[in-house]
Amino acid sequence: MEQAQKRGLARLMLRWPERRAELRQRFAQDPRLPELCEAYEAACEAAAYWTKSSAAVGAERAEEYRALMTATEQDILHRIS
């Protein structure tokens, strides 16, 4: 799980390069932030999985997870602001 947290953090640092130092610092201090990074990573991976899926609900699920990525980003921005 720690790896998923770090992957989520890395993804966010790529997304918001201007906030890298802030993200790194808060990741080490706020126990909720690594959890949110892991949730973000899980949402990204699920969005990618369902985008490729041939299941009938694949497109709907992919859209749901993309929305969840955005919502989790907002949670993280709110947490570090």
Partner: peptide, 19 residues
């Protein structure tokens, strides 16, 4: 395992309660 909606939303819920 393929559809981790509950795990993700639970994390967001914990964070919201903490805040």
């Amino acid at each position: 395992t393929l559809d981790p909606i509950v795990r993700i939303e639970a994390t967001r819920l914990r964070s919201a309660l903490t805040a």
